[in-house]
């Protein structure tokens, strides 16, 4: 299994298209950082338009933690598309090159072959996430410094102490890894049905885009069913940036407001992974491979 995984990882990282995602992430993160460095105060004015008339801000809200929060908010909607580029190509790419049939004639089970391919695409997603963490969190901390974090929501502002944030980012990145692996598993699932990689890549992207739009639209019909879309649970990492409050309405540092809800969302994503990968193995083991 380890040898199979090494071969699959070699294939993934030998392809030039794999590195498109790393370059794209670098470009997006750098552009966001430059934009905030130049125009950050204007952005803050917009975000705080309803409270700046009433309040003075003590501290530096435009710091590395806040910049990373914006980057994650932006990227974790789009990175799934980059993950789909690789995961949706895992089987369909082999079929397209005509090597899939040859591959399954080798004395290894189809299940092991699929699992090694899925693990390789998951490792790729995790490495991409580590790349985002290096650029988005650590570089932002270096450039913008650190202070407390203002988590600006539509109806409230949550203020986190500077020493109560880093561990939340570790948890958030861990959660984001599960979210990206869910996307990888969806792309992988579509991949077994196609003979070229374009179809599954577009299908995965379409599902994510449609579900994300439906989740974002503030229409009662969609609001009542949005919990059924896995994209609603993909932004569960934000739950780590909310705190419990005591009877006086004062936040308690070191706590998570609704940890069971975050864990439930993570469990739903894991269930999707199991379903997609399990479904892929089940269908592929019964499939007559002709290409």
């Amino acid at each position: 299994m380890w040898s199979l995984l090494k071969i699959e990882l070699f294939k993934v990282f030998k392809r030039p298209r794999t590195y498109i995602a790393f370059i794209a992430v670098w470009a997006i993160v750098t552009l966001i950082q430059i934009a905030i460095y130049v125009d950050g105060p204007k952005y803050m004015d917009f975000v705080m338009k309803d409270i700046k008339d009433n309040f003075d801000v003590i501290g530096n809200p435009l710091n590395g933690y806040f910049v990373c929060f914006i980057i994650l908010q932006t990227l974790l909607i789009h990175v799934p598309l980059l993950v789909a580029l690789v995961s949706a190509d895992m089987i369909a790419g082999e079929a397209n090159m005509g090597t899939l049939r040859l591959l399954i004639t080798k004395p290894i089970s189809r299940t092991k072959l699929l699992l090694s391919k899925f693990l390789a695409s998951s490792i790729y997603a995790i490495i991409l996430l580590i790349w985002i963490a290096i650029l988005g969190l650590f570089v932002s901390m270096l450039v913008f410094g650190t202070d407390g974090l203002m988590n600006v929501k539509s109806y409230e502002i949550i203020i986190l102490n500077g020493n109560d944030i880093f561990w939340r980012y570790i948890c958030a990145f861990g959660y984001a890894a599960i979210a990206l692996i869910t996307v990888a598993s969806l792309g992988f699932f579509f991949s077994i049905f196609a003979e070229n990689s374009l179809g599954p890549i577009v299908a995965t992207m379409s599902v994510i885009i449609v579900f994300t739009i439906l989740t974002t639209l503030d229409i009662p019909l969609f609001q009542s069913v949005k919990h059924l879309f896995f994209t609603s649970h993909m932004i569960g990492w934000k739950g780590f940036f909310e705190m419990k409050v005591d009877a006086d309405g004062v936040s308690i540092p070191g706590t998570i407001r609704n940890l069971p809800a975050v864990l439930r969302s993570a469990a739903i994503l894991v269930l999707h992974i199991v379903l997609f990968v399990g479904g892929s193995i089940f269908i592929f083991n019964r499939k007559d491979v002709l290409s």
């Binding site: 409270i51 008339d53 009433n54 309040f55 003075d56 801000v57 003590i58 501290g59 530096n60 809200p61 202070d147 407390g148 974090l149 203002m150 502002i157 203020i159 986190l160 102490n161 500077g162 020493n163």
Partner: peptide, 10 residues
């Protein structure tokens, strides 16, 4: 304040 942000009424 130490290590954080606060909002004070203007």
């Amino acid at each position: 304040r130490d290590g954080g942000i606060s909002l004070l009424p203007k």
